[in-house]
């Protein structure tokens, strides 16, 4: 048995404390790299267990308008995949506890080369990778490279995923299983709480991995509702919407804590469950 991954360790720790995982998402380089680093530290202060760090990509076809604009801000500043990895390394200098998952699209990783990417990500201190447009059937080689570098490969399960396919995905997945709460793009509104509950219950039959919910959680109310039926929640668009109000250039801004308040509020809400 390999040593337990940082994500698995965090998850089992939270489960032991009867707590839910809180996973904020933000885009690397939005509005600039120093500010992203400051934001990441603040997110930890406000209760983040794991941070999903978006790799900017010119064509984010699974993302809604809020995250698209965040990605555009990062790309306007020239943020690359290499910069994103350097950002993780910098964050790791002061934090070896928080889990870091890179989330993005395949092309930048493809162009860097899988082996190079897996090695660089491990060296930087990345714990998991989620490639939105790379379903498990086409991901064998990348998955193998990541596993060899002790990095978890996280997959999505959607409301449209068949039961049979969900089983295959759950078997391939490591770290946590990410349940997409709605048909649509990031930041849309969740409408069908009841079926989410049922689906997550059925996924628990398939895997021992933590099952976390993302794509439509906007505030402490939806955070609480989704956390009550899962092992944790991901908050992306609601945070990126706040980050949009920061202008880059001065990372130690006084508004950083209030910018991340949506995460602190979600922490309190889900801890009250």
């Amino acid at each position: 048995m390999p040593a337990m991954s940082r994500i698995s360790a965090i998850a089992s720790d939270r489960i032991q404390q009867e707590k839910k995982l809180l996973i904020p998402y933000l885009v690397a380089g939005d509005p600039d790299l120093p500010t992203t680093l400051t934001l990441m530290k603040e997110l930890v202060q406000q209760g983040a267990d794991i941070i999903e760090l978006g790799i900017p990509f010119s064509d984010p076809a699974s993302d809604g308008p809020v995250i698209q604009r965040g990605v555009e801000r990062a790309l306007n500043g020239g943020t690359t995949l290499r910069d994103t990895l350097a950002l993780v390394a910098q964050f790791r200098e002061g934090d070896t506890e928080t889990g870091i998952v890179l989330m993005g699209y395949l092309n930048p990783i493809e162009i860097m080369g899988y082996e190079n990417f897996a090695g660089s990500a491990a060296a930087a201190g990345v714990d998991g990778v989620l490639v939105v447009d790379m379903p498990p059937t086409d991901s064998m080689e990348l998955h193998r490279r990541l596993a060899a570098a002790d990095i978890d490969t996280i997959y999505l399960v959607a409301p449209t995923t068949s039961a049979e396919r969900a089983k295959d995905i759950a078997e391939a997945c490591t770290g946590y299983l990410y349940y997409v709460s709605l048909k649509g793009v990031t930041g849309a509104a969740i409408t069908d709480h009841e079926s989410i509950k049922e689906t997550i219950e059925s996924m628990r039959q398939l895997t021992d991995l933590p099952v976390v919910v993302g794509f439509g959680i906007k505030d402490s109310k939806s955070a609480k509702a989704m956390a009550s039926v899962s092992d944790g929640i991901i908050i992306g668009s609601a945070l990126v919407e706040q980050i949009a109000k920061l202008s880059g250039g001065a990372p130690e801004k006084p508004e950083i804590p209030s910018c991340c308040a949506v995460i602190g509020e979600a922490r309190s809400a889900i801890d009250s469950l």
């Binding site: 379903p135 086409d138 399960v157 959607a158 449209t160």
Partner: peptide
């Protein structure tokens, strides 16, 4: 059968669209 032309092609879309 899996939609590849040699090394090209494939099905690289988000999970929500896979069933479709």
């Amino acid at each position: 059968a899996s939609g590849h032309f040699g090394p090209y092609g494939g099905v690289f879309v988000g999970e929500t669209l896979i069933a479709a």
